[in-house]
Design a binder for these strands. Structure first.
Lengths: 218, 218, 218, 218
DNA sequence: GATGAATGAGCATTCATTCAT
DNA sequence: TATGAATGAATGCTCATTCAT
């Protein structure tokens, strides 16, 4: 005599994925600490002990979320950035993919970049790993752009790093701007951002540079 | 000859300020939820009830931190950005002040821009107010720069908004970059960021624009 | 062979009842504010979180106590007062039941009638509801007695109300008297009280009334 | 240089009385535990340490309130009940005084008769003493009435006690009834109550007694 | 005499985590 | 596999009480 709604027996992988998906939403909405395992279990449609059976701990669950979010983002980004000729086109595609991803998977982005630094070693490490992996993709793209653009001696690793950092930060911030301007497409936002940075970068590389009058900054 | 550890009796105002300062550090390090009022009290060198007597609640304490951080930042920024001729010089000074501020008051910046969105109405509102006040300063500066730079018809409020948003995001991100590159001065970082954005913006305004080949972005 | 002190696992309903029973005792002994949830949990043989899991809050727990106490008392009273011929017999049985109930469930009566008025809306409301339901039973009985006794024009609702109020107050007070005179049975106490009030009431209805000499009371 | 509102220097007795008066109101409104010393101090228009300087502790403050309330009530009652000829007149005057007192000094009555039993020895004792002193007055009055009315052998101390207990309880309860019926004067309420009880008592003493049919109660 | 400043101790409530079934 | 029942350990907040001035 089974109940109407028999307890679903799902393969481990599927269950696990469902749990992480639920967790992603709750963590993103409430933040790590304010998130309550009970709510995650509810949202996943299972009981709390199952969460622990599959993921071990809240901490570990969060780590899994970070990992999944990072993987998804990097995949989307790399796929886009690997196709096309010329650094500009690739960067534009990459940024477009980024904005598209964030627009569609807001939660993942929040998990990756809007978390208050946690005390937990494991979480900190995973977040760092994740952020680095994202940054690496962008830096790589930028560097290749610089190289192909014919960089002169003044430009080194630090510059690509600098540009990439600024780019990611700007992109993150524009994420909110997009929410306030819903008529804009990811492609258009990416294009605008790119032009702003890229053209400036190119010119700066070309030696055109503004300096404060009479002041030797260093 | 008083003992080192007699109960120090301080006037209300002083104590209040000390508490908020302590709270700023703890909130920045742990985040709102993970922060524990006990630790704040300890750091301020007093007992927990004093925190509640003076600030009322954890929530209110956080709001006070936000308010103080925002005021300090805006003051520093505006002071710098109000002096000097020409939009570029002013923007550069503003950005320099910003980076100097963040380098020196890391906690304040973390409070303002690295908080997981909280459920609390009061906090959300105060944070929004604070962020807007910061953004407004930057947007204003950017807009004046555009105007004086001779903007054509294509540029409106949305553009200043867009540029400001990207600028703030980039600056935020570069905040971390500065930590990883401690030999850089705020002035130099500001200069680099400025050139990148400014020159790019100017050229884009001037009609120079890259577009994906054969692709109508919209 | 299970250990005496394994965590006893009881179905929700049973536990809930046990908790309310324990709470009833503690609230009665200490009063709402002085009562400590820890003690209630101890007495119920469980941990504090269970109390909150099942009853939600101290306030709600108290409300549950009031509800249970009122229900029990009203049931006992009504059962007794509904049987028997003639208003006198019914009133006597009702009062006997009341005294028996209070003697046996002192705590319930204390909860219902000896609580310092609380600030809490919920508690105030529930207590009012409970007291009214008790009073209604008595008033009803008194009114029927008056009717059957052939009331004249001077008697209305206010009179039944007055008598019932005095009756309940007297009974409440005699509750303490009974504790000081343990050899008295509820039946005897009820009989004495009844005669005192009833005969007096009947005679007063019959027009026999004492007035202060020369004084027009109004 | 004195402030506009110089700190009033009052003789000890006066100050003490003001504090107790304030405490009376707060304790009555909130109950012993929920009452907060801060509020009492505020209401008395002084600072908290003064309360402790004068009264020593919250417990002691409450005891003082009980004492004052009891004294006032007993005084009022005795004064009224000592004048006039005949037990009936005296009882009526006493009850009238009681109802008048309660109507005017609700707080005192609440302190005396509506307090959840406290844990504190001192409080319990003082409350008992107070209640006994009130009850003694009433019992005395009742006993004298019985004596003068020519009681037969069946009536002893327990009976006066019983009647007094019922009387006080009824009066307490009618206190609320009066609030719901503000057009009634204390004198009228006293008269009604008296007639109900007195006539009944007299007749019962006279041998007129109702008994449950066929049931020997004891 | 009078008070602003300060705290030890306690209490309601919550939550990650684990058993017993 | 799956879960209802259960708890240890915090954590925000309050309050009677006491110093130092």
């Amino acid at each position: 005599m089974t109940t109407e709604r028999t307890r679903r027996r799902l393969p481990r992988r599927v269950r696990e994925r469902e749990i992480v998906d639920a967790a992603l939403r709750v963590f993103a909405q409430r933040g790590y600490h304010a998130a309550v395992v009970d709510e995650i279990a509810d949202l996943a449609g299972i009981s709390k002990p199952m969460v622990y059976l599959y993921l071990g701990s809240k901490e570990n669950l969060f780590v899994a979320c970070v990992r999944q979010a990072a993987e998804a983002l990097v995949t989307a980004f790399r796929q886009a950035a690997d196709s096309g000729d010329g650094p500009q086109l690739r960067l534009w595609r990459g940024l477009s993919a980024f904005f598209a991803f964030v627009a569609e998977h807001r939660d993942s982005w929040v998990i990756l970049h809007r978390q208050t630094p946690e005390q937990s070693e494991a979480i900190t490490e995973e977040l760092e790993r994740a952020r680095e992996s994202v940054m690496a993709e962008v830096t790589d793209l930028v560097r290749r752009g610089i190289d192909e653009g014919g960089a002169d001696a003044r430009l080194g690793a630090a510059d690509a790093d600098f540009v990439a950092s600024a780019l990611v930060g700007a992109a993150d911030s524009l994420t909110d701007w997009m929410e306030r301007n819903p008529q804009e497409t990811p492609e258009r936002v990416a294009l605008r951002l790119m032009n702003m940075i890229w053209v400036g970068m190119r010119d700066v590389l070309g030696g055109e540079m503004w300096s404060p009058p009479g002041d030797s900054v260093g």
